[in-house]
Design a binder for these strands. Structure first.
Length: 354
DNA sequence: AAGCCGGGGCA
DNA sequence: TGCCCAGGCTT
C-alpha cells in the first residue's frame, strides 16, 4: 500500500468543481433553456466575446430569431444588423448559413450528435463540445481559453497553449477530471471559474475551490501560467472615406473586400475629380483592433444639387440613406461612432444640414 | 502550422 | 501599449 499518491486525484477535482458550481453558477438567460438552438446562438456569440459585452445582443437576437426557421428565412443583411458592434462578423454570416444547413440537411431538427453538430458552418471543436454537453449531456470537454488557464495553473503545467496540439493535450487532461454525468454543468463550471475566479489577471485565488490543490498558486507562480509563446502583432492601416451628403441624406455601400468588415456598410472610398470642390472639411478617427491600428480619414463632401447627388449614387451603386434608415444597417464600429457624433453635430469639420 | 478576423476591458 | 476573451476559417 502506497503511503502517498504521486498523481493528483483528478476525478476528485472534477467533483469538487461541480459542487462549487451548485452554489456559484452565474445566472445567465441561456442557462434557463434546453433549446439547442439558443445554446448554439449563445456559444457562437460568446466566442472571443465576454458575457457583459454580448448579453444584450443575445436577448435581441433570440427575440427576433426565436428558432432555426426564422433565422434561415431572414435576409443576410438583417442577421448582420443584429450583430452590429460585436465584431467577428463572419460569425453572423456563418450562423445564417448553418441555419439553412439545418433546415436542408437535418430537416429543421437541430443535430444531436457531436459529428453532425461539428459539421455546421462556424462550429468548431470547442463549440461542438459545448453544445453536445450542455444541450444533450454528451461527454465532451469544451476546451477553450478557460480550460487552458485553469488546468495549466492547477497542475503548474507549462505546455504551450499557442501550439495547435494544446487542444488535444488539454482535452485528455480535462477528461481525467470529468465526472460521469452532468457534462454540461462541468463545462459551464469551468467557464464560470475561468471568468470570475481564475481570471487572466489578478485571479481571486482566495475564493477558488482549488486553492489548496493548485500547484501554481501554492508555489507562488500563478503569473507564469498559462505559457503562451505566440505574441500579438499589430500593424497600421490607413483608410480614407468620403462622406457624401445632400441635406440629411448620405451615401453608403456594402463592403466587398473581406480583409475586414466583410459585407458591412461603409462610405465612398473615392470620388471623381469634379467632386473635390465640394469637400468642406475632414475628420480623422483612430480606432484600435486586436491586430491593427486604424487611422480613418473621412472627407466631408457636401452636394448642393440633388440631381447631381442622385445621379452619382445611381451610377456608382450607392444607397441613399438618412440617419433614421442608417440604423437599419450594420456599420463598422468606428463608422457607427462617426454617424452618432455628426448626428449630434459634435466634432464635425464642415457644415451639415444648414 | 500560421495568419487573419473586431471590439471592449484591463493593468 | 500589450494582452485577454465561451474560436473558427483559410491558406
Amino acid at each position: 500500500m502506497k503511503s502517498k499518491k504521486q498523481k493528483p486525484d483528478f476525478l476528485h477535482l472534477g467533483i469538487k468543481l461541480l459542487h462549487w458550481f451548485e452554489t456559484n453558477a452565474r445566472n445567465l438567460p441561456w442557462r434557463k433553456t434546453n433549446d439547442p438552438y439558443k445554446i448554439w446562438i449563445c456559444e457562437i456569440l460568446l466566442q472571443q466575446t465576454q458575457v457583459k459585452q454580448g448579453l444584450n445582443h443575445y436577448l435581441k437576437f433570440v427575440e427576433r430569431f426565436p428558432n432555426v426557421e426564422s433565422l434561415a428565412a431572414a435576409d443576410e443583411d438583417e442577421v448582420l444588423l443584429y450583430w452590429k458592434g460585436l465584431g467577428y462578423y463572419s460569425r453572423a454570416l456563418n450562423l445564417h448559413k448553418a441555419s439553412k444547413q439545418i433546415c436542408n440537411d437535418f430537416k429543421g431538427k437541430f443535430p444531436e450528435n457531436y459529428a453532425d453538430i461539428l459539421s455546421l458552418k462556424g462550429v468548431g471543436k470547442y463549440t461542438a463540445a459545448a453544445i453536445a454537453s450542455i444541450a444533450f449531456n454528451l461527454k465532451y470537454p469544451a476546451i477553450d481559453g478557460n480550460f487552458y488557464r485553469v488546468l495549466s495553473r492547477l497542475f503548474a503545467d507549462d505546455f504551450d497553449v499557442s501550439k495547435p496540439s494544446a487542444f488535444q493535450y488539454f482535452s485528455e487532461l480535462a477528461l481525467l477530471l470529468m465526472p460521469d454525468d452532468h457534462f454540461g454543468d462541468f463545462n459551464e463550471a469551468m467557464m464560470d471559474l475561468g471568468a470570475e475566479i481564475c481570471k487572466p489577471k489578478n485571479p481571486a485565488c482566495e475564493h477558488c475551490p482549488f486553492n489548496i490543490d493548485c500547484l501554481a498558486f501554492n508555489s507562488g507562480k500563478i503569473s507564469n501560467f498559462p505559457v503562451k509563446s505566440k505574441k500579438t502583432k499589430v500593424t497600421d492601416l490607413d483608410l480614407t472615406y468620403f462622406f457624401i451628403n445632400f441635406e440629411d441624406q448620405f451615401l453608403v455601400k456594402r463592403r466587398k473586400e473581406d480583409f475586414i468588415w466583410k459585407k458591412l456598410y461603409e462610405f465612398a472610398i473615392e470620388i471623381p475629380p469634379e467632386f473635390e470642390k465640394y469637400i468642406i472639411g475632414h475628420n480623422v478617427i483612430s480606432h484600435k483592433l486586436t491586430h491593427k491600428n486604424l487611422k480613418i480619414s473621412i472627407n466631408n463632401v457636401q452636394i448642393l444639387d440633388f440631381a447631381l447627388f442622385q445621379k452619382f449614387a445611381l451610377e456608382n451603386d450607392f444607397e441613399m440613406v438618412d440617419f433614421k434608415r442608417s440604423r437599419l444597417k450594420s456599420f463598422p464600429k468606428p463608422l457607427q461612432n462617426y454617424l452618432a457624433k455628426i448626428e449630434k453635430k459634435e466634432d464635425f469639420q464642415g457644415e451639415l444640414f444648414n
